[in-house]
Design a protein around this nucleic acid. Structure first.
Length: 564
RNA sequence: CGGGGUGUGGCUCAGGUGGUAGAGUGCUUGCUUCGGGAGCAAGAGGCCGCGAGUUCGAGUCUCGCCACUCCGACCA
């Protein structure tokens, strides 16, 4: 391709509404264009990289024995009704009516149609296992699209579904996908980390996320450098360190006027946060529950929701808090409650004694409270979020915390969908059983954005060769010099004939403009043809390393071909 | 869904107290340039987000709506 003919527009200025490097660079490099919030067009240069990611995924999935097919993006409501998700998805699902008034949606995820398809085609254990996948657009009316293609409303996802006769089979299918995912992200040159993830409302026996460390990531990752433990913050646990136990003292009520927050309480009492336990009231499926964690800790709502198998959980309303505690918000505690409610205490709180809590009386706290003597918890569980420095649950060394972008998620689904949709098979004994399912997703666009996040500098993108829109660019310094143009064209044609993805910047622009554009769109290797063209000498510049060497024409061509 | 912000050439933005729109960049043309986004000159390009209202007159004031965006909540 000749750059003079390319449909490409780079931008010098940073678009006003792009916050993170990958978003800014994708817009500046002219890879994509926003059409509406969270909805983007891909331009030729962007599409080339996009397809590279897709193809790497496709190759590794095929290698792992998964078979590609494609489902409609638009699906009738019945498909999601049997599983109950037509209602559960709520406003996040794009819904539409056909001319006859029948309800459809744009598929947000495809467990149901895959399950139906397999149900209708497979009857025997002899036909199992099978893993199917598609690379298809998904639609979710996100409350808040952001960060360009990191989180958008129309996005491409590779989603795969495995169907096995038993749990042992699922384990094998799952491991196969795990390995395929590692190969994919390795080939993309991503620095990633695999973390244990919360299974959430999906149930199932296990789930892991492939995370790319990044400060704008929407997930917190807890990991241990010593033993390799890694988990999503939602799921991460830690050891409870034994605290020094004092002899139980008499409980006393303290007047604490207008002291509501832990910070105010610390200042007022002149004590460490570890001597307080805060009590937060939640409304869990209509039931008010008190949850206690150490004063300086955060309640982990995912863990709490799992404990109660909650479908709807919010902080209790002010009215509920005042009714249950008999005090203004800020003075809740486990003692003297006006209504009998369940109390969940965090593991860490269970090791504390003589601590301070709200008195359930406006402007009062209780000192020297002790579990068992002063109140009895309903549950003692891990309900707090692990923080930097907590003891690793496996080895006890300090945990680290960072942010991450979820690029892949593998999931043991079990029988949730096969049971709901009667996706059964006949076993050796002629007995009918539900298939055991797994599902495996990779966000294609998000992965592409993650590659950019990890491969860029102030001048633009630094594509790994595997994802670069073109591998090489030939830059003639002057377009009106026959020697230079002749040699540049010769190199270009040779590379083209040798199957190298190469472009030639034949625009009548100053060299600086061409360099800036080549750097911005991130072509891995640039061949400058200039001053020494007459001697057959050119420059080979590497975008990743910034390295530059002068070589004769043939060596330069070899260098480009050898670049991996 | 709560709270904030912004809508003006393709892009980034300026336009006290109302008088029919500007800059930079990009684009076109010419000349001079030519190794890291050149210089000069001449051009093209705007329903000032939409709709009402006030006014002789609204980019500007009032009200309503919409879109985009940031923070939070939420997120198979």
């Amino acid at each position: 391709m000749r750059v003079s003919k390319m449909f490409m527009a780079t931008q010098r200025e940073v678009p006003a509404d792009a916050e993170i490097p990958s978003h800014q660079l994708m817009l500046r490099a002219g890879m994509m264009k926003k059409v509406a919030s969270g909805i983007y067009s891909f331009m030729p240069i962007g599409l080339r990289s996009y397809k590279k990611v897709e193809n790497i995924i496709r190759e590794e999935m095929d290698k792992a024995g998964a078979q590609e097919l494609i489902m409609p993006a638009i699906l009738p409501s019945e498909v999601y009704q049997a599983s109950g998700r037509w209602d559960k998805f709520g406003p996040e699902m794009f819904r539409l009516l056909d001319r006859g008034g029948r309800q459809f949606c744009l598929g947000p995820t495809h467990e149901e149609p895959f399950t139906e398809t397999v149900r209708d085609s497979i009857r025997s254990y002899k036909q199992l296992p099978v893993t199917l996948y598609q690379i298809q657009h998904k639609y979710r009316d996100e409350k808040r699209p952001r960060f360009g293609i990191m989180r958008c409303r129309e996005f491409v996802m590779k989603d795969a579904y495995s169907f096995d006769a038993d749990e042992a089979g699922l384990d094998i299918s799952y491991q196969t996908m795990y390995k395929a995912y590692c190969s994919i992200f390795d080939r993309l040159g991503l620095d990633y980390i695999v973390v244990d993830a919360d299974s959430g409302a999906m149930g199932g026996s296990g789930s892991q996320e492939f995370m790319v460390k990044n400060s704008v990531g929407e997930d917190g990752i807890c990991y241990c450098d010593s033993c390799g433990y890694a988990a999503n913050e939602e799921k991460a646990t830690c050891q409870v360190l034994p605290s020094s136990r004092e002899e139980a003292k008499d409980m006393t009520k303290v007047h604490t006027p207008n002291v509501k927050t832990i910070e105010e309480l610390m200042a007022f009492m002149n004590s460490a946060p570890s001597s307080f336990a805060k009590t937060i009231l939640y409304n869990i499926d209509g039931k008010i529950v008190g949850v206690m964690v150490r004063g300086d800790r955060e309640i982990n709502e995912t863990k709490l929701a799992n404990l109660y198998d909650a479908t709807e959980m919010t902080l209790a309303s002010f009215e509920d808090v005042e009714r249950v505690t008999g005090a203004k918000v800020g003075f809740a505690g486990p003692c003297n409650l006006k209504e009998k409610i369940e109390i969940v205490i965090d593991n860490e709180v269970s090791s504390m004694n003589n601590f301070i809590v709200g008195a359930c009386e406006t402007d009062y706290h209780l000192m020297n409270v002790n579990i068992g003597r002063d109140f009895t918890p309903t549950h003692i569980e891990d309900v707090r979020t692990a923080v930097e420095g907590d003891a690793c649950p496996k080895c006890g060394k300090p945990l680290s915390i960072c942010r991450g972008v979820e690029v892949g998620h593998i999931f043991k689904l079990g029988t949730k969908y096969s049971k709901a949709l009667n996706c059964n098979y006949l076993d050796r004994d002629g007995k009918e059983n539900p298939m055991i399912m797994g599902c495996y997703g990779i966000g294609v666009g998000r992965t592409l954005a993650a590659v950019i996040e990890q491969n860029c500098d102030e001048n633009g993108i630094k594509w790994p060769v595997a994802v670069a829109p073109y591998k090489a660019i030939v830059v003639p310094m002057k377009t009106n010099d026959d020697t230079i143009m002749g040699l540049a064209n010769e190199i270009y044609e040779t590379l083209l004939n040798d199957g190298v993805e190469v472009i030639i910047d034949d625009r009548n622009e100053r060299p600086g403009v061409k360099f800036k554009d080549a750097d911005l769109i991130g072509i891995p290797v640039r061949i400058n043809v200039g001053r020494r063209a007459g001697e057959g000498i050119v420059e080979v510049n590497y975008r990743q390393s910034g390295e530059m060497v002068e070589l004769d024409t043939l060596s330069a061509i070899e260098a480009v071909k050898n670049l991996k």
